[in-house]
Write a protein that binds this DNA or RNA. Structure first.
Ligand SMILES: [Mg+2]
Length: 632
DNA sequence: CCCA
DNA sequence: AGTTGGT
DNA sequence: TGGGCAACAACT
């Protein structure tokens, strides 16, 4: 069941929309070249793949010269941009500051702020103080600096590279030691190293094969040493070798960056890594757009639907609803995807082949479309609509607090009507309320009434504390003419007054009977985050309405607003995009540097600054979309 | 369900 | 831990 | 064959 839920709450991505790519090309022309004359390199370390691309793209967009591959030394480079968590100590493990006498070593906040203000910001406050003595550079051969390597001799008597660097493709190469001497060695699978002149078996010499600061020199050009996608996922493990104990050796030794997710998205357009810089590299812009174009969140929702095929989508919607009530959510998602594609199709579909050409419509759905075209309806739909079980499940799911599992159980117990539930079923407190207000809760709210409720809540809140921000999000903010419920977000600009606000606000709202039922509320918990309940405006003939309130700290205002505005589909799409970029998005914030193994998070990463919704879009490399454009 |  | 809910 | 439209809070 848990697996089903997880499966049911995730879903597919959308592939159509060649139009998206076209529009995006048009939009990407530079407006201001405030980076003109600057030669900027973005260092890969600790950046997620996508985030790196975004910064690189921005440099090009605003007239800067992007130095894609960092040479050993250069007097020409003006800026090297690092990820936020890189401090001076870490920086020195990545580059030799003295080899870039004219470069500013800045955190990417400098670039973010510059882009935000469309002006070249001063580096003060963003610069990483290296205290570098100025030296002249050597040559421009590309290298990979060994920033962390395990000295531990493993079972096969091999020194291994820092596993967090990703796997380096097995090859012959050489190491240039800090002392200046070089040594030939072989990289084996799993990053194990072996000296080419290795003599005896299991020699202790192996743990001195490489040291921090050594540089991995490019192998002969024939032999590809490090694939780009691996390099793009290069991470630095900062623990000193000395501190590696047996226990954390095991811990880190078992972990691998999983570049596969990125690879799938990267491989079509990724450049060669620094070790193969002569191969040239490609099209950062295309990459980023290609990544995004698969995500609904990159594309405005088309509000003006034509309705050429509403006779088709109407039928398919019924099936989608039926599958959803049967807990077959991924099938429902597949239907929903196709429905969305067909709805946006610009003319009436007249053949199976035409339907098959639409992204998201496969053979089976094309058959169904064909049947609708020819007969006007689907046997399958008729079957479902007559189906006692499906109809009953959908009826029961209308009870707030009852999902597919409960509905199914009730059905198995022989219940068929709401009255059966009222008189015979075991109901949770939620379900009792849900049943009591079944009709009202399942009816739409005109947006005018939503505005009334908003004002009622705002006035109540403002009697508790001045300066509170009270705004309605959800479908109301997306501009829909009717809403299923009212989603009120409350915060306070002072960053403090939101604490313990629920208790007093809810008490106030209860006073005159505005709140009629509480569903989810934790008023004993000072950390309460949400209230779900039922309210009714004063006056006759008013319906009971579902009211959701969240109270958030001001620091989370933007991500909370994003979440609460939705749509759900939009949120899920944007969150998936974030994961593909090595980030994580929730209502609490946007994190970067998140390391995952499959779907499991290994590293929390760190919070990015998200003062506005715009900043969240920007971090993800997306054009801003207004709430109305998020109605997917 | 669709798709790679 | 499983279910439901919010976007 | 398995991911896709996520990542949370709260109740039971
Ligand atoms: Mg709503």
């Amino acid at each position: 069941m848990k697996r089903n839920i997880n499966r049911s709450t995730t879903s597919r991505k959308k592939r159509k929309y060649e139009e998206t790519a076209l529009r995006e090309k048009r939009d990407s022309l530079p407006v201001i070249n405030f980076l003109e004359g600057l030669k900027i390199h973005v260092h890969v370390a600790n950046f997620g793949a996508g985030r790196l691309k975004i910064f690189e793209k921005q440099i090009e967009k605003y007239g800067g010269e992007l130095i894609r591959d960092l040479p050993i030394s250069s007097g020409e480079i003006t800026h090297i941009v690092f990820e936020e968590s890189i401090d001076a100590e870490k920086l020195k493990k990545l580059v030799i500051p003295a080899h870039f006498p004219n470069a500013h070593f800045v955190r990417c906040t400098w670039l973010s702020l510059s882009v935000k203000n469309k002006t070249r910001e001063h580096v003060v406050g963003h610069e990483i103080e290296t205290g570098a003595e100025k030296l002249k550079g050597i040559d421009s051969k590309s290298t990979l600096v060994i920033a962390g390597c395990s000295k531990n001799v493993n079972s096969s008597n091999h020194t291994s590279l820092d596993v967090n660097a990703g796997n380096v493709q097995p090859c012959h190469c050489s190491i240039e030691c800090s002392s200046g001497s070089t040594r030939s060695l072989q990289i084996l699978p799993e990053n194990n190293l072996e000296a080419c002149d290795k003599s005896a078996h299991g020699e202790q010499v192996s743990h001195n094969l490489v040291n921090e600061g050594d540089r991995l020199l490019a192998p002969p050009s024939e032999e590809k040493c490090v694939t780009n996608s691996k390099l793009r996922n290069f991470k630095v493990k900062w623990e000193s070798n000395e501190s590696l104990t047996e226990s954390n050796k095991t811990k880190y030794g078992g972990e691998r960056l999983e570049p596969e997710n990125h690879e799938n998205l990267l491989k079509k357009s990724t450049p060669q890594g620094p070790l193969n810089k002569d191969k040239g590299s490609t099209n950062v812009k295309a990459f980023s757009k290609q990544l995004q174009s698969k995500f609904v969140c990159s594309q405005p929702s088309t509000s003006h639907s034509k309705g050429f095929n509403s006779h088709i989508t109407k039928e398919l919607e019924k099936l989608a609803a039926a599958y959803k009530s049967k807990n077959d959510t991924w099938r429902a998602v597949g239907y929903q995807k196709a429905i969305s594609a067909i709805r946006n199709y610009s003319k009436e579909i007249t053949s199976r082949e035409e339907a098959l050409g639409i992204r998201g419509v496969g053979a089976r759905l094309a058959d169904k479309v064909s049947e609708i075209i020819e007969s006007g309806k689907l046997r399958k739909v008729a079957e479902v609509c007559e189906d006692d079980e499906a109809k009953t499940l959908q009826l029961f799911m209308g009870v707030w607090g009852a999902g597919p599992t409960t509905a199914k159980n009730w059905y198995i117990q022989g219940f068929r009507t709401l009255d059966d539930l009222q008189t015979k079923a075991t109901l949770t407190r939620h379900q009792q309320i849900g049943l009591k207000h079944y009709s009202d809760i399942n009816s739409r709210i005109p947006r005018e009434e939503v505005a009334e409720i908003e004002n009622y809540v705002r006035e109540a809140a403002l009697t508790i504390k001045e300066g509170l921000i009270v705004m309605v999000c959800g479908s109301y903010r997306r501009g829909k003419p009717t809403c299923g419920d009212v989603d009120v977000l409350i915060t306070h600009p002072d960053g403090q007054s939101h604490t313990n606000l629920f208790k007093s606000v809810l008490k106030k709202l209860h006073e005159n009977g505005f709140l009629t039922d509480d569903l989810v509320t934790q008023e004993d918990n000072g950390n309460q985050q949400k209230y779900l309940g039922v309210c009714k405006l004063p006056g006759a003939h008013k319906k009971h309405r579902r009211l959701d309130v969240i109270v958030v700290p001001y620091a989370e205002y933007a991500p909370a607003t994003m979440y609460f505005t939705g749509s759900a589909h939009f949120n899920r799409s944007m969150r998936l995009l974030a994961t593909k970029m090595g980030m994580s998005l929730s209502e609490h914030g946007l994190r970067a540097g998140v390391v995952r193994q499959g779907r499991e998070k290994l590293t929390e990463g760190y919070l990015l600054d998200t003062p506005s919704e715009e900043s969240i879009f920007a971090h993800l490399g997306l054009e801003y979309r207004s709430p109305q454009e998020r109605d997917h």
